[in-house]
Each structure stands twice: as C-alpha cells, then as structure tokens.
Design a protein around this nucleic acid. Structure first.
Lengths: 298, 298
DNA sequence: GACGTCCATGCCGCCAGGTTATAGGCGCAG
DNA sequence: CTGCGCCTATAACCTGGCGGCATGGACGTC
C-alpha cells in the first residue's frame, strides 16, 4: 500500500487530538476531508485504526501500533530531506548562512566579504529567519552556520562563539511620554506594555523582555510579532514598547518611532553558531574564522 | 515537502536503472509519466538529483545522498505496515496461516479443526500463496505461521518443524507415451520438458525439477506457472510434465492429466514454519502443536 | 543521411482529494 | 422531552495532479 507523508501527518494529528474536528483545524483542512483520508488509510491497510464515538476518535490496538511508528517515519523522511539539501548546497559550493534580523547588522557585510576572499568559488547564501526561529534555522539543519543573538533556546546543543556585545536600548512610539527623556532607566518601564516575540521562543523572548531585570515584576505584553516590519508597526501604533540592540537605531527605524539609551539592563551579545557535526568542516570553520576576525575590527 | 512511497520507489528505480526508459518498464508506467514525477521530485526538493545525458540518468552528489536513504525509508514504512496488520490480527484473535497449494492437502482440515478446539474464540485465516512465494508469506511477515513444502529459500531464517513425508509422483498429459506405464523411473524423464515454478524461487524450483537427481543432466523447462490451475493446464496442453506430491493425485487433477508413481526421486516433506520472534507466542505455538499431533494421526 | 536511443513536451481523460452544506447520533440543560 | 451542542458521516461538486499516447529534439551509430 502506498501512503504519503501528508496522510501520515493527518493520522498522527488525529491520533494526538483524539478528534477529527480538532485535528482538522490544527491541520487547516476541513473535517470531511480528514474523515475521508482517515477512512482511506484504514481501507488501504485493511485495519480499523480508530473506534468512533460521540466523544471523538480513540486509537485501537493496531492504531496504537501505527501511531508509535509514524512519527519516526516522518522524522526519517525529514532527516533524509535535510541531508539531501545539505549535500546539494555543498556540491554547489554554497554555504547557507542563517541570520536573525538585527543579529549582526553592520558586521554582516564585512564578514561575507571576508568569506568571499578566503573561499573563492564559494558563495554565502544569506537567509533571514523570523523571530519564531531564534537559531535562524540551525536547529533544524536548514543552514550550515548562523549569526544569532544570545541567549536562545537550543543553544546548548550547538557550538557558539560570542563575537561582540552592544548595549540594549529602548524603542518607543514618538508620542510616548518617555520619548522626551534623553536616557531611560529600565525600572521605569516595568509597567509598560511590551511588543514581544512568540511564546515558543522561550528564553529568547524573555531575554528581550528583560525578565531577569524586573525583580519578578510581571511583564505586560501588548503585542506579539515575528518580523522587524510588524514589530516597528506595532510600536508605532502604540501597542507597546520594546528593547533592541543599539545598532537597531541605524537599521530598524521608521517615522513615529524613536530609540533611546537605556540603563539597568545587560548588554546584548551576538554570536556565530554551528552544528557540532561541522566541527571538522573546513568551510564552516573558515566562516567562523571570518566572523572572529571581523569581531576584532568592529 | 510531501512525498509518497510511490514517488520514492520511482526515484529508487531510476537511480538503480540509471535510465528513465528502463525504470519505466520495470515499474509498469510510461516513460513520460516517470519523467514528470522525477522532475516534480527535484522541483519539490529544490535539488537536481540526476544529470541527464543521452546515455541515461546519472545521480548527482545530493541524488546519491537521497538514494542511500530512500530504501531504508521504504523499508521502515513496510515494517510499520506489517506490524500494524499483525497487531490487527492479534487484536481480532485471528491467526494468519499461510499455505502453499498442495502443502498439507488432507492434513489441513483436521489441523484447523484441532486449533479451533484448542483456542476457542480464535479463528485461523487460511491464505493460499502462489508458488512464487514458497514461504507462503512468512518471510514477509504477512502470516503468523505457514504450512510449507521443504526445502524452500529463506528457510534457515525461520523455525521449521517437519510434519510428514510422502513420495513424489509424476504428472503427465494423458496422451504422453509414458502415461501407459504403471511406474516410471525418473531417469527416463531427464530429457522431458518440465513445467516449473518461477526462477526466483531458487531451491524450491530446483527441488521440484529434481535437479539433484539428474547427475548434472540439464533441465528442459517447457513452461513456468505460479498456480495449480495454470500448472495443470500447462501439463494438459503438453507444454511439459511435472513432479508433484502423491496427494496431488487426489487434490489437483483434471481430465487429460494423469498421475503416475515414480522411482528414483526422494520423497517430499511438509512442514510447519513460524518466525523466531513468535517462539514465545502461545497462539502460534498452539497451532504448531496442533500440526504435530495431526502428524501422528495421519 | 537514415536509424536507434535517450529524455522532454503537449494534450487529454480520469480520479483522488479538497470544499461547503447537511444529515444523524447522542449527552446534557432547562 | 425538546432543543442545543458536540461529535462523525455523507452528498454534491470542483480542481489539479498524475497517468496515458503521440511526438519532438538531441546525439551517436551504421
């Protein structure tokens, strides 16, 4: 019997949710479509995978058997996919560099230039990642190396070299009362609503909310954004304020938004990260070396 | 990216054959269909998997990467499939019994009856296998236990208990000159064309051609068949003669075909086989016990 | 220069898989 | 006991993917 990864994902979703209706919304398909696909899977296998009832779908014994194995099958495919893509970029002499918006800022250009000098024939392919992905794709092996802001979740499973630090400042709407001050103390911002990164970014989100510097004082979140554009808009529209690296004042600004120096928060570090598997990869190590040298220059 | 097992099998076939045209005939699809599917795979991955030339399709480096992993992915799916089916039959209290046509003959009915007595609530599901599958599905884990004729390829990886033996006889078209004889010496049949099992059955095929009893004299194969019906037809139509267990005279016969005793060939053994993984499976072991007891009775 | 052997392309038909709307079973609240 | 809310199943319809056939185009061979 033939099956595709989508069908397997459908099955896993239904198994996990215990309900066609809920699984359908999670998968962004209609419930009848799911009904039919699951029945098709059962028919193809010649096995009843679920028992239906008004309370939902419960796995049968063979259903549990399949449900135990399906995630590994999907993971195996994802893995093969990544390795194939990885081989393709290597064969094409392309180094995939992930970076998070505002990670390296003015350091980025010289780093790539230096890499181009050191590795003629190779090309660095820059991929900007959304904030929901603070390892810039490195955790999923979508890139070979990443320029990141520290700390971020999953960091311990990767190699990270710190490149430099810069102070964090605050970004406010022009009309904000504090916009008139030259320097702001973080304490005064404790009760302000903040524009935050998505919750799944964990430690990274907390770092940019400066959760550690609030003495346990709770955070008010006024909006959640994934990208610099939305982020600036949210601030301009008064949904909240936000912390940012100092260099953001030069890279991410727009009318209606002002940057102000801040006291009472630690500076932010930029790092270059790679997977332990690439410890011996000369191209990756060359790139890291380029980063280190630029650090001195900056 | 989503993919289905068929697409993966297509890819593996092209990779192995090194040619769309040849892979297409092996897969029983048209060459244009394969062209399109492979291009779709490449487009989906964003990777060139093959380099095309007039001599065929050669894997690229990333293509090789995928080609190394694809068979394992397919095998993983097949395995999950088998385990799920297996769990289903266990849950339904069904013992899947494979048997090869003419394996047990009159012993089969009493065995099932005995099993039904010993395991009330359980049902033995009999599945006849073609001769191209002399383990009757046990090698592929399609059944839990199998009634087989020995020897067969793959036998060493399974547990086998011999149940009984019976002489082999010869099956001839009525019009054959030897049909008049009461008893035939195998020597006299060396130059006769035989109706044989498919070549992939290896040892099993050779056993029924009595290759070991020909002193190296080559075999003439007049036809290849997979099932008793075709087999009898082939003999009746004069494509060749064949060896068969004595009991085939009672189970597999038809007008125009006669069975005659034979000297000079070893007898044929019937066995019951199961997978080593089921050594501790009480239901399987009960079935085996039923077989052993019937052996004494027969 | 005709032919053979590859892979690619154009065109068409069919069905798998999606959508919306609706039916139907059953528990629960009023 | 009736209406509502939670499920899943069914019906009717539409679209696009995938397969088939016929043909094109590149290139080496005889």
């Amino acid at each position: 019997m033939d099956v595709d990864t989508r069908l397997l994902r459908y099955f896993v979703a239904v198994a996990e949710e215990g309900s066609l209706t809920r699984a359908a919304e999670r998968l962004y398909v209609s419930q009848p479509a799911l009904t039919k696909r699951i029945r098709q899977l059962e028919a193809g296998l010649g096995v009843d995978l679920f028992t239906r009832s008004r309370t939902g779908m419960t796995l049968t014994e063979p259903g549990r058997t399949l449900a135990e194995r399906a995630p590994a099958l999907l993971a195996g495919w994802e893995r093969a996919l990544r390795e194939t893509r990885s081989a393709a970029s290597r064969a094409a002499r392309v180094l995939r560099v992930g970076f998070i918006a505002s990670a390296a800022n003015e350091a980025t250009q010289p780093i790539i230039a230096e890499f181009a000098r050191r590795r003629p024939g190779w090309r660095a392919e820059m991929r900007q990642a959304a904030w929901s992905n603070p390892s810039a794709g490195l955790a999923d092996a979508d890139v070979d190396v990443a320029l990141v802001r520290l700390p971020f979740p999953g960091q311990d499973a990767l190699r990270v070299t710190v490149l430099f630090s810069e102070p964090r400042c605050v970004v406010l709407p022009e009309a904000h009362p504090f916009a008139a001050r030259e320097v702001i103390a973080f304490r005064d911002l404790w009760d302000e609503p903040f524009v935050a990164a998505p919750p799944e970014t964990g430690r990274w989100r907390e770092y940019w909310l400066a959760a550690d510097e609030r003495d346990g004082h709770p955070v008010r979140v006024g909006a959640v954004t994934e990208q610099p554009d939305d982020w600036l808009s949210a601030i301009a529209n008064g949904y909240g304020i936000a912390l940012a690296p100092e260099s953001a004042a030069r890279f991410y600004t727009r009318p209606g938004v002002v940057h102000r120096p801040l006291t009472g928060v630690s500076p932010s570090s930029v790092g270059v990260a790679w997977a332990p598997a690439d410890d011996g990869n000369p191209v990756v190590q060359d790139f890291v070396r380029c980063c280190r040298e630029r650090r001195v220059a900056t």
